[in-house]
C-alpha cells in the first residue's frame, strides 16, 4: 500500500468507526469514573452569588424555556438552581415558555422532590397547610415550627420542607409568553389567576409579597432557544429586572455579549455550566454531593480529547498525503 493510499484511507475512514469510538469513550468513564477537577467561571459564580445573597423575603423566577430535546443540558442547571433556592428558602415562581416546557417544569420539580433520592426536599401541597394559613402563620420559620409541632417529620432522605404558595409556585405555560412577561411587569396574578394545580395565586403568601416582576429579585431563564431573549427585552429593558441565563452550549457564544453589556448577571453554558453550579453548591455546603452534570464531565473531557485527536489525525493525513496540493480527497462516507 502506497503512502498516499494509506493517508487517503485514513481520511475516508467509515464514519461509523468514529461513532463507535465516541460511544466507547462516552460509556467507559461512567463505569470507571476518574473525577477530573472542574474549575468555576465568573459567569456561573455571579449567578450562584446572587442567589446565595437572597433569602425568604426575596423571590426569583425560574423559567423552563426548553423542550425535551435539550433536557440533558438545561435540566441539570434548572435542578441545581431550584435546590439552591430551596436551601436558601427563596420563593421560586416557575414558568414555561412552551407546552413541552410545562412538562419539563413538572419533571424538574418532581426530581428535586423525589423522596427516594438523597438531598431531596419534601413538598407540602397548598391545601395541606390551609389551616396554618387561616391561623395567620405564613412566615417560613413559624410555619415549619408549627408544621413539625403537629407531628410532621422529614422523611429519611429529605433535607427540608417546601410549602406550595410559600416556597414555590408552579405557574406553568401560557401562550405568547413574551406578552405574559410584559403583563407580569404590572401584575403576576393578572396573568396567572391560578397555578398549575388550580390554586388561586391571590391567596398565596409569596404572591402577596411579590405582586409583580418589579418586586422580584432575579429571573433565570433556562433556555434551549432564543426564548431567553424575551426576558431581556420585556423584563430587563422595561423594568430593569435582573436576568441570568442557563443556555445550551450551542447558544452560549451568542449570549456572551449580554454579559459584557451588563444585561444579564451571568450565564450557565451547557452541561459544563450546570456542573460548575453543582461544584459551587457542594463546595459551599448547599448540597452534600454533586449531581448528574458533574458526573458527565469525565465523559465530556474524554470525548473532547478523542475529537481533538481525530482532528489532529485528519490534518496530519491531509498534509502528509499531499492532498492540500492534489485535491484528491474523496467525499467521506
Amino acid at each position: 500500500m502506497s503512502a498516499v493510499n494509506f493517508w487517503g484511507k485514513m481520511l475516508n475512514v467509515d464514519r461509523r468507526w468514529i461513532f463507535l469510538l465516541i460511544g466507547v469513550v462516552s460509556i467507559v468513564p461512567f463505569l470507571i469514573p476518574v473525577g477530573m477537577p472542574l474549575t468555576t467561571t465568573t459567569e456561573v459564580e455571579s449567578i450562584y452569588d446572587c442567589i446565595d445573597s437572597l433569602g425568604p423575603e426575596n423571590a426569583i423566577f425560574l423559567a423552563f424555556d426548553f423542550d425535551p430535546g435539550t433536557d440533558a443540558e438545561n435540566m441539570p442547571m434548572s435542578v441545581a438552581v431550584m435546590r439552591h433556592a430551596f436551601f436558601r428558602h427563596v420563593p421560586v415562581f416557575m414558568t414555561a415558555y412552551t407546552p413541552l416546557g410545562n412538562g419539563m417544569m413538572m419533571s424538574g420539580f418532581e426530581y428535586v422532590t423525589n423522596q427516594e433520592l438523597p438531598g431531596c426536599y419534601t413538598p407540602v401541597d397548598y391545601a395541606d397547610w390551609a389551616t396554618y394559613r387561616d391561623a395567620g402563620i405564613v412566615d417560613r420559620d413559624g410555619l415549619v415550627a408549627a408544621w413539625e409541632a403537629d407531628g410532621h417529620s422529614l422523611p429519611e432522605n429529605s433535607v427540608g420542607w417546601v410549602f406550595e404558595g410559600r416556597d414555590y409556585a408552579l405557574l406553568g405555560y401560557l401562550p405568547l409568553f413574551h406578552l405574559v412577561i410584559l403583563g407580569m411587569t404590572s401584575s403576576i396574578e393578572a396573568q396567572y389567576p391560578e397555578d398549575s394545580h388550580g390554586n388561586p395565586l391571590v391567596e398565596m403568601p409569596m404572591l402577596r409579597e411579590h405582586k409583580s416582576l418589579r418586586e422580584v429579585d432575579l429571573a433565570l431563564t433556562m433556555a434551549g432557544s432564543s426564548a431567553c431573549m424575551s426576558w431581556i427585552i420585556y423584563g430587563r429593558e422595561k423594568i430593569g429586572l435582573p436576568i441570568a441565563f442557563g443556555v445550551t452550549a450551542v447558544m452560549a457564544t451568542d449570549y456572551f455579549p449580554f454579559i459584557q453589556s451588563h444585561q444579564i448577571i451571568g450565564q450557565m453554558g451547557g452541561l459544563r455550566g450546570a456542573a460548575e453550579y453543582e461544584v459551587l453548591m457542594e463546595r459551599n455546603g448547599v448540597s452534600a454531593t454533586t449531581d448528574k452534570a458533574f458526573t458527565g464531565m469525565d465523559v465530556q473531557s474524554a470525548a473532547h480529547l478523542l475529537i481533538i485527536l481525530l482532528i489532529i489525525m485528519g490534518n496530519v493525513a491531509y498534509f502528509a498525503g499531499g492532498f492540500h496540493k492534489q485535491h484528491l480527497m474523496k467525499s467521506g462516507r
Binding site: 465516541i22 462516552s26 430535546g69 435539550t70 433536557d71 440533558a72 443540558e73 445550551t248 452550549a249 450551542v250 451547557g270 452541561l271 459544563r272 458527565g296 465523559v299 465530556q300 470525548a303 473532547h304
Partner: peptide, 9 residues
C-alpha cells in the same frame, strides 16, 4: 460540547 452533552444525557 453541546452535542456530546446530549449524548451524555
Amino acid at each position: 460540547m453541546g452535542r456530546i452533552s446530549l449524548l451524555i444525557g
